[in-house]
Design a protein around this nucleic acid. Sequence first.
DNA 1: GTCTATAACGGGATAGAC
DNA 2: GTCTATCCCGTTATAGAC
Lengths: 193, 193
Amino acid sequence: MAPRTTQILEAAARLIARRGVRGLRVEELAAEAGVSTGLIYYHFKDRTGILRHTLEFISNRAERYTTGRDPEAEPLAPREELEETLLQELQDTPEVRENSSAWGELRASAVFDPVLREDLARATLVWVQEVAALLGQVQPMTPAPALAAAGERLTALLEGLSMRWLSGGTQLDHARDLLRGAIDAELALLRRT
Amino acid sequence: MAPRTTQILEAAARLIARRGVRGLRVEELAAEAGVSTGLIYYHFKDRTGILRHTLEFISNRAERYTTGRDPEAEPLAPREELEETLLQELQDTPEVRENSSAWGELRASAVFDPVLREDLARATLVWVQEVAALLGQVQPMTPAPALAAAGERLTALLEGLSMRWLSGGTQLDHARDLLRGAIDAELALLRRT
DNA sequence: GTCTATAACGGGATAGAC
DNA sequence: GTCTATCCCGTTATAGAC
């Protein structure tokens, strides 16, 4: 990917986090990225193309910051790794805020835009499986379907909590507590399976 | 509320469910409601006014269909009532689909539109408290904060699952199973409190 | 690949008659 | 309260030069 494209996609992620998919103006994107509108259409064809590529860009980036841990640090216990992975999405840093609000926007847009659905479903699946794998490390010997279900619930809950946080209804700390509680509940359930 | 306004709001709910908040065109709304655009602006002032009132309309309607049960039928056991109340939001009927997708849209819009936040927060609170009360009937003697937390988690999860359903990532039946599982998990947790 | 300039259009909002 | 007609602005998208 050319440096210019990356630069545009970074700007798009920033802007979507700030104004939403609905508020994204191509001209504003051009200004934010320091390029012309013409160049954007040259690279991404149309508005939907911009959104599609931004979704892809965002989910790649999320994988990176989820996976990437300081190699110096001692490896975490499975339980801590699970918790940390999930709680990482509930932090008030620019990058997380960007990813979360862009993700929420794209999820909402996908309801009405079939073009976005496939990419979104794929990215979701990857995420669910990652969480399910972590759950499996905490509770080995658990049947795969139970792990998958718990992974789906935890990630769906996380999306719900993110939206409430971003839309101002729920304080960040509170959302984090709620998520921790859900992890407890799910692990307790798995233990009984 | 005048019959005309209701008629317009019903049309708005339908249209938002079909096209999204972003896709809502005032002119199209007028056609759908069988009135003129002028009348819409007369009643609701501007586009945001339409959205605000539609949100209110939708959450009132949701309360109604949640609360309203055939008085002939025998009263449900608390556990069944809880489950039914929550699962009612995961049904493939026009009314539920409308409410859910409009709700999701408004939630997503509120992230970038402060005007919508207050109403949304209030409507959410009512809903959470209703679920918490039902949980309290299933598990009496549970401390209120634990009930509130479980209520918040279940409703947030439900929002997350709804979005996945509507955006095509998760089958309806599967979403319902996942929700039932979460109810189990939460009740098990409450029992240990 | 990148820019500037502009075409083309959609859609929010209002004025004024009835 | 309700309608018709219309203004006008913001936005997407393209043409064409460099």
